[in-house]
Amino acid sequence: MRTTHTLSVLVENKPGVLTRIAGMFARRAYNIHSLAVGPTDDEAVSRLTLVVGAEAVQLEQIVKQLNKLVHVLKIVELDPDESVEREMQLVKVLADPATRSQIIEIAEVFRAKIVDVDHDSLTIEAAGNPGKLAAMLELLAPYGIREMVRSGTIALSRGSKSISDGSRARMQRVV
């Protein structure tokens, strides 16, 4: 049974929406592995990618509880086999004249880019799935990692379908 799930969530781009989601996870003791948020092609809508740790029953609760938030528009779980998942990683590695070329070689193997060079360090930018990024980090570790940062996962389903398919607002009477 898979316990890590990737959820794509469309939300209204309103103040506090991230707090609402994070607060709901904290209050109900749900587990977020990673969270990435950013704009979409519609400026009123943001898209979150959440990687959550949950068994099937809890996952269903997470989705239902998310859906109860008024600013949440749509939630889709992405099947790992049917989607593209990426994280981005920046790593600053110690580099001297003796090690510099070895490090650059490692970066090339992972199709990473050198984005900053100093006398005694290199900064490498890499994108990919979590496994690939971890593997690269492992190879770089012996050279001395000064600091690093990794983004949350972002993901899209494969093929031409879109998360926004079929969502539309409707007017409802108040009284």
């Binding site: 939300v11 209204e12 938030l69 008024v70 600013h71 949440v72 528009l73 969502s167 539309r168 607002a169 409707r170 007017m171 409802q172 009477r173 108040v174 009284v175």
Partner: peptide, 10 residues
């Protein structure tokens, strides 16, 4: 207007 439009609440 007597109506509301709440895309995320149905």
């Amino acid at each position: 207007d007597d109506r509301v439009e709440l895309a995320g609440y149905r």
